[in-house]
Design a protein around this nucleic acid. Structure first.
Lengths: 121, 121
DNA sequence: TATTTATTTGACTAAACGGTCAAGTAAATA
DNA sequence: TATTTACTTGACCGTTTAGTCAAATAAATA
């Protein structure tokens, strides 16, 4: 009952993830998110609660889906800007790290950051 | 001739570098820099010109000095938040990268980001 | 069809943002 | 000592920030 959502949450989270990767967590404004999703602030806050909620939802989805493009981008943004200030994000990233510790994870992270910076590829 | 600076520029840049590492580039406000250096906005702007100027000066000094603690922290902040929006910073980081390409630099960067995030050490 | 319930809309807010500048102060020169 | 020059001070500015909310709208139920 009640009105139906006019958007697909997963598609929106993909757009939100992309803008967080492009501009960083603190570098992304609500206006940026409004612009890239086409939704208005009220809908975004009704769905995700806060900017941190938007980041957490995008990060979780990218890890569940193993969407590599979003996953690596959001992980390095989280590690640099969010992890140290948000326990929930720290726990998510830590759980992921524990699960992937055995692989050459440090080198992979470094390569992703080099890509992100535009220094390689 | 004229009044002398009341502070040591290199010491101040070390303090500025530390706050940029702790809070990230976009996460660091001018008030943060005022607080951590003990200087006022006017002195900071008279010396460094802009927030970007403060970051560039701190980054350059850390690379010249090979101050590892600052160097790695500022490099990863630069790569994630600044490089893609500031040509000057991109060029500085690129010059550093070209010079260190032969070492296992990706792994080193990854380890530094893992440290920064609090996941290791 | 009337009622209920959930979503959408966008104007609004208080706080924080990067940056400016005229006035005040101190050091060096003449 | 008087003058010049550079640095310091902090109030101030317009803009942007994350977040709110009452009214409007649409879908489902009764």
């Amino acid at each position: 009952m009640g009105r139906k959502k006019s958007f697909n949450t997963d598609d929106v989270l993909s757009q939100i993830g992309q803008i967080f990767i492009k501009k960083g967590y603190n570098g992304t404004s609500l206006d940026d998110i409004v612009e890239c999703t086409g939704l208005l602030r009220g809908s975004l806050y009704a769905t995700f609660g806060s900017k941190q909620g938007m980041f957490i939802s995008a990060l979780k989805l990218s890890l569940e889906r193993s969407n590599n493009q979003l996953k690596w981008g959001l992980l390095i943004v989280a590690m640099l800007e969010v992890t140290s200030r948000n326990k929930k994000v720290y726990d998510i990233v830590q759980a992921w790290y524990v699960e992937h510790q055995n692989e050459k994870i440090a080198e992979k992270i470094g390569l992703e950051l080099l890509k992100h910076s535009g220094l390689i590829e």
